[in-house]
C-alpha cells in the first residue's frame, strides 16, 4: 500500500517534469489522466468586453453620466456627518462616531442628487449604484486598495456590488451598517426618516444595527427595518413598491386606498387629496409599469368608481364613494 503510493507520486513527478512526455508503464492511468486534463477550463469563455468595461471603470474610478463629484477633506466630511446627525436629533450619533472606523488618510468623493433627479454611478471597484433623488453617496476613492470598500449613504440607493470575497463592501447609514461581499439590494435611509431599510434582491447581506448593536443576515427577497432605538424588524416579504423608483413598476394587491395614495404622491411628486365621505373601506389592485399618473388614477377611478379631478399641475382631488 505504502509502496504503491510512493510509486504513484514518483510517476506523477516524472510526468510533471517532462510535461507528460515521460515513458510510464502502460498499466498506469497517470499518462492518460495527465493528457485528459489538458483541455480543462478551456470552455470558460469570459465576457471580454464586459471585463474591459469593468477594468476601465476601475481605472477611471469615475461616476458615469456627468454626476457631480465634490471631494471632501476628512474634516469637512466629519463636520458634515456630524451636522446631519445633530440636525436629525439622533440618539445614536455618538455611537455612530465610535463605531465608524477613523480613516484620516482616505480621500472621499461625494455624489449627490437633487429632488426628482436620479443618477447611475459606477464605483472604482466596478460596483453599480442607482442613486435615487435627494440622496448623497460618499465613497472612498481608494477602495480598490482598502481592506474594506466603504461608502456612506443618506437617502436611497440600489446597489449591485461587485463580488470580492477578500474585500467586503460596507455601507454606513446613520442607523445601520450593511456589509456584503457581492450582491444586489436596496438601501433606504432618508434624511427625513429615522429608519434605514434594506431589501435584498439577490445574494446575502449582513445588516448591523449600530445603535443597538444587533446583527442580522438577510437572504434574497428578505428585508429589514432598522429604527433608531427599536429592535431589528425582519420582514419576510419585501415591500411591493419599495423599489418602484428604480424599476418604474407599481403594484397594488388589495391595497387600502389610504396606503396607496402616499406612495403615488411620493413617486409622482404630487399632492393627492381624498374627500372621504364616510365611504366603506376602499382597496385597489393592479400593476403599472412606467405609466403616467393620469393613467394610474384613471385605472383607480374605473376600479373603485370614485371621481378624479386635477386641480393644479401637481394637485389632484379624489371624491365619491367606492363601489
Amino acid at each position: 500500500m505504502k509502496k504503491n503510493t510512493e510509486k504513484t507520486v514518483n510517476i506523477w513527478d516524472r510526468l510533471r517534469q517532462s510535461d507528460g512526455q515521460s515513458a510510464v508503464p502502460t498499466d498506469q492511468p497517470w499518462p492518460k489522466i495527465w493528457q485528459g486534463a489538458e483541455g480543462l477550463g478551456q470552455d470558460f469563455e469570459p465576457d471580454v468586453e464586459a471585463g474591459l468595461k469593468r477594468l476601465k471603470a476601475k481605472i477611471h474610478a469615475m461616476p458615469v453620466a456627468g454626476a457631480r463629484i465634490r471631494r471632501l477633506t476628512p474634516l469637512a466630511r466629519w463636520t458634515r456627518t456630524l451636522a446631519a446627525a445633530v440636525v436629525a436629533g439622533l440618539l445614536g450619533w455618538g455611537i455612530y462616531l465610535l463605531v465608524q472606523p477613523a480613516t484620516p488618510v482616505a480621500t472621499w468623493a461625494e455624489i449627490t442628487t437633487q429632488a426628482g433627479e436620479q443618477k447611475a454611478v459606477v464605483l472604482p471597484d466596478g460596483s453599480k449604484i442607482a442613486l435615487n433623488s435627494a440622496s448623497s453617496l460618499t465613497y472612498r476613492t481608494d477602495m480598490n486598495e482598502a481592506a474594506e470598500r466603504q461608502v456612506q449613504l443618506i437617502g436611497e440607493a440600489y446597489f449591485e456590488v461587485e463580488r470580492r470575497p477578500a474585500q467586503p463592501f460596507k455601507i454606513t447609514t446613520r442607523q445601520a451598517e450593511v456589509e456584503v461581499l457581492g450582491t444586489s439590494f436596496n438601501v433606504r435611509a432618508r434624511a427625513e426618516e429615522t429608519t434605514t431599510e434594506v431589501e435584498v434582491t439577490q445574494g446575502k447581506v449582513a445588516v448591523h444595527h449600530l445603535i443597538r448593536d444587533e446583527k442580522v443576515v438577510l437572504a434574497a427577497k428578505e428585508a429589514v427595518l432598522v429604527a433608531n432605538d427599536q429592535p431589528l424588524v425582519q420582514e419576510t416579504s419585501p415591500h411591493l413598491n419599495r423599489q418602484a423608483w428604480r424599476t418604474g413598476r407599481i403594484t397594488f394587491r388589495e391595497t387600502p386606498l389610504e396606503a396607496a395614495l402616499p406612495l403615488l404622491e411620493h413617486y409622482y411628486n404630487v399632492t393627492i387629496t381624498w374627500q372621504k365621505s364616510a365611504a366603506p373601506a376602499c382597496s385597489i389592485t393592479g400593476n403599472w409599469q412606467n405609466d403616467s399618473l393620469t393613467e394610474v388614477l384613471q385605472a383607480i377611478a374605473a376600479y373603485t368608481g370614485i371621481t378624479v379631478k386635477q386641480l393644479t399641475a401637481d394637485t389632484y382631488q379624489l371624491s365619491g364613494i367606492c363601489k
Binding site: G41, F44, P46, G51, R164, P165, G182
Partner: peptide
C-alpha cells in the same frame, strides 16, 4: 480569455478567476 482560463484551471471559480485577472 487565456489568462482567465489559466487561473480557472487552478481555481475553479469563474468570478474569482475574472477578478484576479482584472
Amino acid at each position: 480569455t487565456y489568462l482567465c482560463q489559466v487561473v480557472f484551471r487552478v481555481l475553479p471559480d469563474r468570478n474569482t478567476a475574472e477578478d484576479l485577472v482584472q
